[in-house]
């Protein structure tokens, strides 16, 4: 009965077709799996994260242990003086460089992550409030953003660090102050666009409080953008922390921050270039992989928004 077989085939195909329509989360997963930048960037970020978390276990030495008899030993590939005991060499005080770099990852990731998170919370609140309420409140929000943009951020940050000191908490808060404006600008304009949608009107008609509308109706719709900005700002925060520490106004010695390592290595860079290359490349690779991951998140969550 060829006819019957044929019709069953078609039914099978129809079934398959229906099964094949993926749900949005499934679609996202597929896009994530096939996004090369996201996978490479994400893996490198995870690698740095693991190194940072397990530094106390993995690192061969104590990051603060000085040994002046073992000063400035070059990395292991230096045929004459390199040794496997210090694969990345030692610094001017005889501290193991690999160990200090590993602990440096802790500082960079911690400051970068929390600076991005705190500024995300502050900036998004400001932006959503301005975008949702409009009118005078929005004018005030715009005014705040304009003031922030006009201030020379790096100088303000340097002044604040000089006043409040370079503790990690102080650095996180000061850096958050530098980065909240982009969240505010983006969430504000997105909120303005979605404010007019029916589901917002419906929530208003039901008598939902304004705080609740912002949290449960607006926030989920701007969350994607917030995460994308946060990943990119985290990368910038890591660079700025390194810059502040490089200038001597960030993390204080002997804490191993990559920026500080760079500035300590600077006096020896003509003869011992590895002292600046290791921390410089560490910052570069961490930042580039965070950026790749962030771009990936943007493509995966909102592929229509890329260009």
């Amino acid at each position: 009965m060829p006819d019957a077989i044929q019709s069953r085939d078609i039914e099978d195909q129809v079934d398959e077709f229906e099964v094949a329509v993926p749900s949005p989360p499934e679609l996202m997963k597929r896009r994530a799996k096939s996004h090369r930048g996201f996978i490479i960037g994400g893996s490198v970020v995870i690698f740095f994260l693991l190194v940072a978390v397990f530094a106390p276990v993995l690192a061969p030495f104590d990051p603060y242990d000085q040994d002046l008899t073992r000063r400035l030993i070059p990395p292991v590939w230096d045929a004459a003086k390199g040794t496997w005991e210090h694969p990345f060499g030692t610094d001017a005080l005889g501290r193991d460089y690999l160990t200090r770099l590993m602990y440096g990852a802790q500082i960079s990731l911690m400051i970068g992550f929390f600076a991005a998170a705190v500024s995300a919370i502050v900036g998004s609140c400001i932006g959503m409030i301005g975008g949702y309420f409009g009118g005078r409140i929005d004018n005030f929000v715009m005014y705040l953003i304009n003031v922030k943009l006009a201030l020379p951020g790096l100088l303000v940050a340097l002044s604040l660090v000089s006043v409040f000191g370079g503790s990690i908490l102080a650095l996180i808060l000061i850096l958050s102050f530098l980065f909240w404006d982009r969240y505010a600008v983006v969430t504000r304009s997105v909120t303005q666009q979605i404010r007019v949608n029916d589901y917002i009107t419906a929530a208003q008609a039901l008598g939902t409080s304004r705080t609740r509308i912002i949290i449960s109706e607006v926030l989920p719709n701007v969350m994607n953008q917030i995460i994308v900005i946060a990943s990119l700002e985290m990368a910038v925060a890591i660079i700025v922390e390194a810059a502040l520490s490089f200038l001597g106004l960030g993390v204080q010695p002997p804490t191993p921050s990559w920026g500080l390592l760079l500035s300590e290595g600077r006096s020896y860079m003509f003869f011992m270039p590895y002292l600046i290359n290791f921390p410089g490349l560490a910052i570069f690779f961490l930042v580039i992989s965070i950026n790749m991951m962030g771009d990936g998140i943007r493509d995966i969550t909102a592929p229509e928004g890329r260009n």
């Binding site: 990368a235 660079i239 390194a242 810059a243 920026g259 410089g280 570069f284 930042v287 580039i288």
Partner: peptide, 8 residues
């Protein structure tokens, strides 16, 4: 250009 710290 975006990822390399300018001081490095």
């Amino acid at each position: 250009g975006q990822a390399i710290p300018n001081f490095y």
